[in-house]
Amino acid sequence: MTTESLNSSSRGKKWLWFHRFGSPAWVYGFASRWAMPIGVVALLLFVVGLYQGLVVAPPDYQMGDSYRIIFIHVPSAWLSMFSYFVMAVSAGIGLVWHIKVSDLVARSVAPLGAMFTFCALVTGSLWGKPTWGTYWVWDARLTSELVLLFLFIGYIALSNAIEDRRTASRASAVLALVGLINLPIIHFSVEWWNTLHQGATVTKLGRPSIDTRMLIPLLIMFFAFNFYFLSAMLYRLRCELLSQERRTQWVREIVND
């Protein structure tokens, strides 16, 4: 027995639940159990949120009905950054502790993050045309969000380009960690520089400067997007686990059922 496993067992049972997340077979079972219920919750939230946002919420005093794009734009933008954070942190954990599951979480989050970033850019541009008068402008917020899309694409490309698994996850983890610096730049870009993009509404210190009837659908959609993200991530993680562990006993048992 190595000194390390002695250490961890002597630290007590508190750590047992945590160590389970390092076991691919256990995580596969966990994902299979939770992906569907979480997805159902997301679907219900989407239905309520869309109804509240498109039908119940009143139009804006300046932008009329075009502001309704925020109900998908803001959650997409939030998730684009959040999924990058999840991806970089789990890739980093995989890099330091060599936990396979952690690498696979990063791999399954990356395409989702790219999708959210793309959605944030497209919906933002479709909102920009009627409100600002242009689809695109190279201001700090829009440019840094575009850089985020390239970081996701770079991560996906790099982790697929290298044949050897361990080298691939190491190289792409370094890229993901270096790209973390972009997150504070995206968030604070509207404060640090003059931009066409407006400042933060909901996370503003003090009271959010948005009417309650508009804030409620925004929050519902926010939760819907997060649940969708979680469910989609678990579904993707299942695929990653199966194809990575294809030669192991637990996969054979699952496949033969």
Partner: peptide, 18 residues
């Protein structure tokens, strides 16, 4: 040559604005 409007971070219905 080009004029773009900058939107602020406030969202409210017309009657509230009034």
């Amino acid at each position: 040559q080009q004029v773009l409007a900058k939107h602020d971070e406030n969202y409210m219905p017309p009657e509230v604005s009034a």
